[in-house]
Design a protein around this nucleic acid. Sequence first.
DNA 1: ATGACAAGTTAGCCACGGCTAATATAATGA
DNA 2: TCATTATATTAGCCGTGGCTAACTTGTCAT
Lengths: 148, 148
Amino acid sequence: MTETTPNEDSEPRPAEMRAESFHAVREAHRNELAEDYVELIAELIAQFGEARPVDIAARMGVTPPTVAKVLNRLAREGLVARAKYRSVFLTPEGATLAEACLRRHEIVVRFLVRLGLDPETAEKDAEGIEHHVSERTLDLFRTFADGD
Amino acid sequence: MTETTPNEDSEPRPAEMRAESFHAVREAHRNELAEDYVELIAELIAQFGEARPVDIAARMGVTPPTVAKVLNRLAREGLVARAKYRSVFLTPEGATLAEACLRRHEIVVRFLVRLGLDPETAEKDAEGIEHHVSERTLDLFRTFADGD
DNA sequence: ATGACAAGTTAGCCACGGCTAATATAATGA
DNA sequence: TCATTATATTAGCCGTGGCTAACTTGTCAT
């Protein structure tokens, strides 16, 4: 069975097109955590004037050492600035990313609520969905949320 | 920093509620790859009568050794059955999971298309979104896709 | 029947993001 | 002040899922 060509009438998506989709998903996963952190940091700063690892940990639902590791990566990637044993701040790039994420998050939540979902579940689902929504889809979401 | 919600003194979500959301997302991620594989294997079997690692690799966009590793995990978890150097098959549990995934995938795609997205992008986005949609949201998607 | 090629596996590397335990620093209050 | 507590970091473990290189097995044609 070495045939690579399906002889059925229903046309399945070509293998390399599929591969592309999964590539995109893996790509999204790599950015996902960074976006969640940056978004959260922005919120904490807005709320408390600073973002402490202990607060990040509580809200992300992980332990402080995990936060430390991730923050190191974010710092390495230029999204976050920090001094040892001090609070975390966003670089300009980090702030830009955070803003974009917040906007996208808001759109997804509003969309889901408009669709009829309770705000609670909407928040939860949005957390997972927001990183996998293309620009085109986001536009459709926004339009729909804004009143169709 | 500007407020993220129209109401300035609106309560931010409690920390542990947020943590719960992120927990759910991480949980989803752990199942995600398994679901994608099982779904793909089901399709390959339907199409060719068997699922070969080399075909899985091509469609997942990864190398054969990666496929081998993941298949080992799936076998350990009882989703997949296999003999060395032979094709892969689904256990009853694997088949059940695959069926559920295919259904969900279909619903998400139909929903996105109904929203106005081109089928191509719909497929891509669905690949990422489908694993993060709660039952409640899926119901709403189905309803919207089916008529309205 | 055998030799060449395709396919599958194993070994071994890496980065990531979880964790616990131990340590270092900061902040607080008696 | 200084001892205690709270917070942050480091060290070190684990599983996962990428990869390449090397090896084994299967398949097919001659």
